[in-house]
Write a protein that binds this DNA or RNA. Structure first.
Length: 262
DNA sequence: ATGGCGGTGGAGCACCGA
């Protein structure tokens, strides 16, 4: 079983690349971020034609997340618990049954948080507190689960080509990194870091200033695994070639492969 | 990065992302 995350930066702009990639790597479950459209405008026909069930949590213009699965969803919930007034579409969760039991997948688009010193940064930190609280709830189920998405957090200096350039950025603030570590300390495993200690493994390159050509990237798209999921992890792939295409997203897909028969 | 790129809405250019 293969679970992937991909910040597409507008699903309507990326539908061609997305379908090519689905055909190419054939993930079982996909978490999409920044679909940037309402549910009714999501190009579901093209994706359903490839054999996927589609569940969206969209929003006009900004944000928006979706779950794709080759296997039917037993249940789907929209929105991160903890603040009924939060209008931003940043979280969707689904449960899929396998031969050996259920797998739960949470797809998330964590707030960017820039600029520092504004309500945007406090919203980021409070959103992370809600994610930590929800993770505690999920851990109590003692199920395999994956929280995958654009975390907008650079966990360590080796996750950036030029860490010094990010010291004033919300993505690399001590508070942001501390809350990410808090998630790990609950018992979650950063899938990529379970497979390698190497630096230079990035998932985002800015459109500006030739960042891709200079490999000036950062690692901010992550799959965090419950203990029951981490036990079955066999590999992680970053589909870096997607960034070299014409009109790419500024993020590339990340996939975790599990020894879980469907 | 004193934000140079790309997306959205909507028909200018402001706002957002990272």
């Amino acid at each position: 079983m293969q679970i992937a995350t991909f910040n597409v930066n507008s699903v309507k702009q990326r539908i061609g690349h997305l379908c090519d990639w689905l055909k190419d790597v054939s993930p079982d479950i996909v978490c999409l971020q920044e679909i940037k459209c309402v549910d009714e405008a999501f190009p579901r026909m093209e994706i359903e034609a490839l054999g996927y069930n589609v569940e969206t949590h969209g929003q006009k213009t900004f944000n928006g997340v979706a779950l794709l699965s080759k296997h039917p969803f037993d249940e789907v919930t929209r929105g991160l618990p903890g603040d009924d007034d939060d209008q931003q579409a940043r979280y969707i969760e689904g449960v899929v049954s396998t031969k050996t039991g259920v797998v739960r997948v949470g797809g998330l688009y964590l707030p960017n948080g820039n600029p520092l010193g504004t309500e945007k940064f406090t919203y980021k930190l409070s959103w992370m507190d809600r994610l930590i609280a929800h993770t505690k709830t999920l851990l109590a189920y003692e199920e395999p689960f994956v929280l995958a998405g654009d975390y907008n957090v650079i966990p360590m200096p080796l996750d950036a080509k030029n860490p010094d350039a990010w010291t004033e950025d919300a993505l690399f603030q001590p508070e942001s990194r501390a809350k990410f570590r808090e998630l790990l300390a609950l018992g979650l495993t950063d899938a990529l870091r379970a497979t390698t200690d190497e630096g230079g493994l990035y998932t985002f390159w800015d459109y500006q200033a030739g960042a891709w050509q200079k490999n000036n990237g950062i690692r901010i798209d992550h799959l965090l695994l419950s203990p029951q999921a981490a036990d079955r992890l066999t590999g992680v792939e970053i589909d870096k070639d997607m960034r070299a295409r014409e009109k790419p997203s500024d993020h590339v897909p990340v996939r975790a492969i599990f020894d879980i028969p469907m």
